[in-house]
Structure formats: C-alpha cells, structure tokens
Design a protein around this nucleic acid. Structure first.
Length: 274
DNA sequence: ATGGTTGTCATACAA
C-alpha cells in the first residue's frame, strides 16, 4: 500500500475552458487525487465535466459564473458531501467544499475547502476602492465562518488563491510592495490572524520555511517572467492541526508557468501520508 | 512615475 494517503493540487486556472489542454497535461503528469481550481470563468452548464471524467476525475463539485470567478473541485476519490457558501452575502462562486467519502480510505472524512479571495483592485484604501473593501469584508466573512463552524476541529484542508502574500519572503521585494494590494499590512496581518487564530497550519511554510523565497504567481506583464522573477506567493495550502503531522511534501510546479498559454498562477501540490 | 498582459465579452473591465 502506498504511504500517500491523499494528494491535493490547487491552481488558479484563469479560464478552465481555454486552458483545459494544459490542465489535462498536468493531471496526466501528476495524478493528484484531488484538483482544486479557481477562476474557472465558466457557467455550470459549460463546465468541462465530461473532459474531466474522461481524465479519470469522476467526482466533481463546481460553481461558476459566465466570464468571471468560479471554483471547482474534481477528484478521483468520492465525496460524502459538497457545499458552496455564498460569501459576503453574494452568490459569486468564490467558495466550494467537499468532504471525502468512506471509500477514500485514510483520507475519508477530510473536508477540503477551496477559496478564491477577491483580488482587491489597485488602490489599497477601502474608502476609495470598493474592490478593496470587498476583499477586507471577504476576509472578515472567512473569520466569522471559522469562528462559527470551527473547521480545524475536524480533519480539514483549506486551499486556494487567497490573493495575499503574507510574509516578506513571499514577495520579490517587501519594501517595494508594502503599498501594493496583496502585500499591504492590513491584508498580511488580517490573513495571518485569520490563519493562526483558527488553528490552521501553513503547509507551504512548514515545509519551505522562511527566509526561502516561495512564489506561486508571476505577472503576465513582465517581458520575461522568469528572468525578472517578480513573483508573489498568492496561493495557499492550510491544514488542520491533526493533519499537520502527516504533511509529506509540498510542490510548487514552477515549470508550468512556461507551458503553452499558461495561467499567471502555477499549481501547488500537497501530499499527506497515512 | 508609468505601463506593462491576459481573458471574457463585446469593445470595457477585472485581474
């Protein structure tokens, strides 16, 4: 029997229909048990469900909108239940969760939460920028949700594009990004409090501790993303304390950023041992 | 200081 009880990949795909070919290549290469996607940009009736089934991912949960937002979880392991929460009172497809069924073996009963936090626009002032106000309200909603449901009291994994790079070594220049949305103190402190107060363990930083620089996103706007290497760690994997001892590996799939017609985010894979 | 790119949908807007 494999010592690998559960592998989960998370990836902001920036249009699942446009990028299905590279998603398929990724699944064939890595074969994660579960793939969590953000920014699918697809209404539910146009989600490529049959394509994922053909790739072996029979179990699916997704919510989407036409042209924006959207999250999905596709899996080789069956679900006992699925849930999509409206955040900030809006049904705008920024959260979906599944709990793995008894047939998932050592991974049975693990709940996987997939979040897509609003990017927040350009101006880091909630009074001047509604999108930044929405981002802060979304984080407050996540805090409320965690306080009310205590997700880390049970085996749980939280993944997604949280659109915040919390630590100095999560960005190419801490000093130059202090006023840039994704790395402002109000965001980084709020995210760190949200994570730690509710008992989540940062899986990426557990296995790749500071001060190693870790990025999961590189802008489309660089002439040469790899040469300039102005990245940020916007994508996260958090686990509940009872799973922290089972963290086997975390992989940032940086080469995927150079694949044909890439997303600006790369996939991240976490593996839990039995 | 500014603009740089991408995807979607319709030619603006969000990221």
């Amino acid at each position: 029997m494999s010592n690998n009880a559960l592998s989960i990949s998370t990836w902001n795909i920036n249009s699942v229909r446009l990028r299905f070919p590279i998603v398929k290549d990724f699944l064939e290469a890595e074969r994660p048990d579960v793939l969590c996607l953000q920014e699918t940009k697809s209404p539910d009736d146009r989600f490529p469900a049959a394509d994922f089934r053909q790739a072996g991912y029979l179990h699916q949960a997704f919510v989407g909108n036409k042209g924006y937002n959207g999250v999905a979880i596709v899996s080789r392991l069956p679900f006992a239940e699925t849930q999509a929460m409206p955040m900030c009172g809006r049904a705008d497809a920024r959260h979906i969760a599944v709990t793995l069924a008894p047939e998932a073996g050592r991974a049975a009963g693990v709940t996987i939460h997939n979040f897509y936090v609003p990017a927040g626009g350009d101006v880091p002032d909630p009074d001047l920028n509604d999108k930044f106000a929405h981002k802060l309200a979304f984080l407050a909603d996540m805090d409320r949700w965690a306080a009310e449901t205590a997700p880390t009291k049970r085996p749980a994994v939280l993944v997604g594009d949280l659109n915040i790079a919390p630590y100095e070594s999560d960005v190419w220049s801490h000093k130059q990004l202090l006023d840039v949305v994704s790395h402002t103190p109000v965001e980084t402190e709020t995210l760190e409090r949200l994570r730690s107060v509710h008992g989540w363990v940062d899986a990426i930083r557990t296995l790749k501790p500071e001060p190693e620089r870790v990025y999961t996103w590189w802008s489309y706007r660089a002439q040469d993303w790899e040469a300039s290497d102005r990245g940020r760690r916007l994508d996260h994997v958090w686990v509940s304390p009872d799973l922290a001892g089972r963290l086997a590996s975390v992989e940032i799939h940086k080469p995927v950023r150079s694949w044909n017609r890439p997303s600006d985010h790369v996939p991240v894979t976490v593996r839990l041992s039995s």
